[in-house]
Measured scan of single mutants.
Amino acid sequence: QSSFEIPDDVPLPAGWEMAKTSSGQRYFLNHIDQTTTWQDPRKAMLSQMN
């Protein structure tokens, strides 16, 4: 996992939702293809902008 956290005020891509496990770990739900991931989809968006 990357060492940086994206602030919560940065919006997720369309169709995504952020949730937390009972222990507080963030994960991401993709409602478009109905998958979940630990990888923040905003990181991919930001790396494409740089």
Rank of each mutant, 00 (worst) to 15 (best):
P11H: 14
M18Y: 06
Q48D: 14
M18D: 04
L12F: 09
A14N: 12
T35N: 08
P41S: 01
S23E: 15
A14K: 15
M49I: 13
Q48C: 12
P41L: 00
W38I: 04
R42W: 01
A14D: 14
A19C: 08
Q25I: 07
K20Y: 14
L29E: 04
A14T: 11
D8R: 06
M49S: 15
T37C: 02
T35L: 12
A14C: 07
W38Y: 12
N30M: 00
Q25M: 10
D8F: 05
D9A: 10
F28P: 01
M18S: 10
E5C: 12
I6A: 06
R26S: 12
N50G: 06
F28G: 02
D8T: 09
Y27A: 02
W16L: 02
V10N: 12
F4E: 13
K20T: 12
Q48R: 11
L29Q: 10
S2E: 09
Q25Y: 06
T36L: 03
P7Q: 12
M45L: 14
L46A: 10
P7F: 07
R42G: 01
T37F: 01
H31S: 09
T21R: 02
S23V: 09
P41Y: 00
A14R: 13
E5L: 09
T21M: 06
D9E: 14
K43Q: 04
S23M: 07
M18F: 04
R26P: 08
Q39D: 07
Q39I: 08
F4C: 12
G15V: 02
Q25T: 06
V10I: 12
W16F: 09
M49Y: 10
N30I: 00
A44G: 14
M18T: 07
F4N: 08
S23C: 11
G24S: 05
G24I: 00
P13Q: 02
S23A: 09
R42C: 02
D33M: 14
Q1I: 15
D33P: 00
G15Q: 04
R42D: 02
T36N: 06
W16T: 05
S23G: 12
P7C: 14
T36I: 02
T35M: 13
I32N: 02
E17P: 03
A19W: 04
A19V: 10
V10P: 08
H31A: 08
P41W: 01
S22W: 05
I6M: 15
T21W: 02
E17W: 01
R42M: 01
Q25D: 15
F4S: 14
Q48W: 07
G15C: 05
K20M: 12
D33W: 09
R42V: 00
D40R: 01
L29Y: 05
S2F: 07
H31D: 04
M49L: 13
P11D: 02
P13W: 00
D40L: 00
K43R: 08
G24Y: 03
D9F: 06
P11E: 07
L46N: 10
D33V: 09
M49H: 06
L29F: 08
I32D: 15
L46I: 14
Y27Q: 04
N50S: 13
T36F: 03
W38L: 08
L46V: 14
W38E: 07
A19G: 08
P7T: 15
Y27M: 02
S23Q: 14
S22K: 13
D8K: 07
R42A: 01
V10R: 10
D8E: 11
F4D: 13
D33Y: 15
P11N: 12
I32S: 09
P7D: 15
G15E: 06
D8Q: 07
L12M: 13
S3Y: 02
D33S: 12
E5G: 07
D33Q: 13
Y27F: 07
P11K: 07
Q39T: 10
V10T: 15
Y27H: 03
M45C: 12
W38H: 05
G15H: 11
H31M: 07
A19R: 13
D8P: 06
Q25P: 02
S23T: 11
S47L: 13
D9G: 10
P13D: 04
H31Q: 07
R42N: 04
M49N: 15
I32C: 12
Q34D: 05
Q1S: 05
L46P: 14
W16C: 05
S47V: 11
P41D: 00
Q1K: 15
E17A: 11
D9P: 04
D40S: 01
W16V: 05
N30S: 05
Q25K: 10
V10L: 09
Y27P: 01
S3D: 11
P7G: 05
D9K: 10
E5Q: 12
L12Q: 03
Y27E: 04
E5N: 13
E5I: 11
M45R: 13
W16K: 05
M45E: 14
E5F: 09
L29H: 05
Q48A: 12
Q25R: 08
S3K: 11
Q25G: 07
H31W: 01
R26C: 11
W38P: 05
P11Y: 04
Q39V: 13
Q34E: 08
T37H: 08
R26N: 15
I6Y: 11
S47I: 12
F4R: 10
Q48N: 07
P13F: 01
K20G: 05
Q1M: 12
W16S: 04
S3A: 05
W16A: 04
Q1E: 08
F4I: 15
R42T: 02
W16I: 04
Q34A: 09
D9S: 11
D8M: 09
F4G: 03
R26L: 09
A44Q: 15
M45G: 12
I6T: 10
V10E: 14
G24L: 03
F28M: 01
D9H: 12
K43T: 06
Q48V: 08
H31R: 09
S2G: 11
N50V: 08
L46F: 14
W16M: 00
L29C: 08
K43G: 07
G15R: 04
G24Q: 05
D40Y: 01
Q39C: 13
T37M: 03
F28H: 00
T21H: 08
S22H: 01
T21S: 10
S22E: 14
P7I: 13
I6H: 15
S47G: 14
R42K: 00
M49C: 14
Y27G: 02
Q1L: 11
F4Q: 10
S3V: 02
G15S: 06
Q25S: 13
Q1V: 13
T21F: 03
D33F: 15
D40M: 01
S2K: 08
S22Q: 12
N30D: 05
F4M: 12
T37E: 02
Q34P: 01
D9N: 13
Y27L: 03
Q25W: 05
V10K: 09
T37L: 01
Q39S: 10
P13M: 01
P41Q: 00
S22I: 10
Q34V: 02
L29P: 02
M45K: 11
A44P: 14
S2I: 05
Q1W: 03
R26Q: 12
E5T: 14
G15N: 08
P13V: 01
R26V: 12
T21G: 06
M18L: 12
M45V: 13
S47E: 15
